[in-house]
Structure formats: structure tokens, C-alpha cells
């Protein structure tokens, strides 16, 4: 069997079984889940498919959606980042504090917020890559540190009184599309390019697939790990920017438990929790799926405690169905 003829044969077979190929794509199950849940919600509540509700859902999704981008990078390398919610809160609180308490111009505060996010991310990355500590422990510690620092700095109260133009990031619109939604889409597009079209992206997958083999073949595994946690810090800071704009204040208590929603979005999107396999588009689908569940259950007026139970069960079910790949 020569290599060429078999390639041609495989190509023919591929076209003949096109439907099968679509079904075998890792995006198939998350997409089917999204469609099924949307239809169910559409039946349950007539408002669901209105443009304003859809925009509303997407806007609500945007913060966890953006956190989930960084989380995808980290999980693809086989790591995890539990600190995203706390880092987001600290970043927003410090940014607001600089603007309000130190009377700095708004843009200085925003840049400082981004700086805080990236620094904490890089700190996580350095501890994991060079400190050789397990990611779950390092980021758990960072979660506590970031949350504590935010509360210390603010005394536990929201910091309000920031320049009014910052609200544009949280509630502004371009046409009918909310700014946070546009930000989310842009961030996903950038992440897709990074993961699918650059050597860096391949190396991210390689580390999750087999770190030792990647290292021995000359991949800078430590540097890549540092970078993915840095990216996660950066996306946390972007989420903080949107949150601050929406609430018009720095909220030291914001984002509790968001790390779990972000992880859920990544896993619902078909990314292997052990790393090496997964697609960023899947994460977007997973995040939207979670958002629709939240929104739909709210529209139906279901008891919020019961909502958590239902969401948990649906996540379990989705992962059970998708477990093979």
C-alpha cells in the first residue's frame, strides 16, 4: 500500500461520509446541546428568542465567557486556574481605587488593572513552571491572596465614583450590540488565531498531550506555561474592566465562584480536563449554553436554589454524553 493512493482513498471516503465527519467533530456535541437547550427554552418562554433577550443573554455571558478563554489555554496545557474570579475582583477594585482614592486619570486606573491581572497570572505561571508546583494548589493560594488583598485595600466596601465614560465598557452599545459582547467575540477570535494558527498554539496543545515529549523535542515548555497563565490573568483583567463598567464601581466581593463557571464552560465545550484536546470555539458554545440555562431558568421563574441543582445535573449529563472523546 503506497502512501499516495491511500491518501486519495481516505479523501474519497471522507467526502462520502461527510455527515459522519461533522458528527465526529469535537464541536458537534456542544452544538447539539446548545440547539436542544435553546429550543426547550424557546418553548418554555415566548420571550426567549426575541432579539433583545438574545443580546441580553450574550451580555450576561460575556464576563464568564472571557474568563473561560484564559481558562481554555490553561486547561489545554493540562493545568487549571482557580484564581480567575478573585483576580478579576482585585483588578477591578484596584483600578477603581486608583481613580477614586488617588484621583488618577481613568486610563491609568484601567492600565493598572490590566497590569495587576497579568502580574498575578505570570506569578501563577512562574510558580507552576519553575516552582514545579501543582497548578491547582498554586492558583488556589493565589485565589485567597487576591481576594484578601482586594478586601484589605477596600475595607470590604465597593469603591464607587469612577469617571462616567468607563460605563461604556459595561453597558455601551455599538448599533444594537452591547460592547461586552463585541469584546468577547474579539477576544475569542484572537484566541482562535493564537491556538490554531501559531506555533505557540501548537505548543500549548503539545504540553497537554505529552509534556515530556514536547520538552525533549525542544519546546520551551516552561515559557509556554508561564504565558498561558499570563493570558489567563489578562482575560481576568478584561473581564474586570467590563464588570467595573457595568457596576460603575470596584467590587472586592465580585466574581465568587466564577472560576467554576469558567471551568464548566470549557469542559462543556468539549475540552479534555486533562489537557491536549479541545477547541476554543467549543468554550464559546459552552459559555453561551451556560448563559442560556441561567437566563431560561430565570425566565421560567424557577427557584434559584433549584436552578443550581438543575445546572449541575445538566453539566454532568453533558460530560457523560461527551466522555468518549
Amino acid at each position: 500500500m503506497s502512501h499516495n493512493t491511500t491518501t486519495a482513498e481516505a479523501g474519497r471516503a471522507g467526502r462520502a461520509f461527510n455527515l459522519r465527519r461533522i458528527l465526529h467533530s469535537p464541536l458537534a456535541l456542544p452544538l447539539i446541546g446548545l440547539i436542544v437547550v435553546s429550543i426547550l427554552m424557546g418553548f418554555a418562554s415566548e420571550n426567549f428568542f426575541s432579539v433583545s433577550n438574545i443580546m441580553n443573554v450574550l451580555r450576561q455571558v460575556s464576563i464568564v465567557g472571557i474568563l473561560a478563554v484564559g481558562m481554555t489555554f490553561v486547561i489545554l496545557t493540562g493545568g487549571i486556574d482557580l484564581s480567575v474570579g478573585a483576580v478579576m475582583a482585585l483588578s477591578g477594585t484596584l483600578a477603581a481605587g486608583l481613580m477614586v482614592n488617588m484621583a488618577m486619570p481613568g486610563w491609568v486606573g484601567l492600565l493598572a488593572g490590566l497590569g495587576v491581572g497579568v502580574s498575578l497570572g505570570l506569578f501563577n505561571g512562574a510558580m507552576v513552571a519553575w516552582g514545579r508546583m501543582p497548578a491547582i494548589i498554586v492558583t488556589l493560594a493565589t485565589m485567597g491572596i487576591a481576594r484578601g488583598l482586594g478586601l484589605l485595600y477596600s475595607g470590604g466596601y465597593p469603591i464607587s465614583g469612577i469617571p462616567s465614560w468607563i460605563s461604556w465598557f459595561g453597558i455601551g452599545r455599538i448599533g444594537i450590540v452591547p460592547v461586552p459582547v463585541i469584546a468577547m467575540v474579539v477576544i475569542y477570535a484572537l484566541a482562535w488565531v493564537l491556538l490554531q494558527r501559531t506555533a505557540f498554539g501548537r505548543h500549548v496543545y503539545a504540553i497537554g498531550g505529552n509534556e515530556l515529549a514536547a520538552k525533549l523535542s525542544g519546546v520551551k515548555t516552561q515559557f509556554i506555561k508561564l504565558t498561558v497563565y499570563g493570558i489567563s490573568g489578562l482575560t481576568s483583567a478584561f473581564a474586570a474592566l467590563i464588570l467595573t463598567g457595568r457596576l460603575m464601581s470596584g467590587q472586592p466581593n465580585a466574581g465568587v465562584g466564577f472560576e467554576l463557571d469558567a471551568i464548566a464552560a470549557v469542559v462543556l465545550g468539549g475540552t479534555a480536563i486533562a489537557g491536549g484536546r479541545g477547541l476554543i470555539l467549543g468554550t464559546l458554545i459552552g459559555a453561551v449554553l451556560l448563559g442560556i440555562l441561567n437566563n431560561g431558568l430565570n425566565l421560567m421563574g424557577i427557584n434559584p436554589y433549584l436552578q443550581d441543582v438543575i445546572k449541575g445535573l445538566i453539566i454532568l449529563l453533558a460530560i457523560y454524553i461527551g466522555r468518549e472523546w
Binding site: Y205, A206, G209, N210, L212, G276, R277
Partner: peptide, 9 residues
């Protein structure tokens, strides 16, 4: 298997 290949690639 351990040092050479990324088996999921």
C-alpha cells in the same frame, strides 16, 4: 510513547 510522541496529535 513517554518521551517521543504527543499521542493525541
Amino acid at each position: 510513547k513517554e518521551q517521543g510522541l504527543i499521542t493525541s496529535f
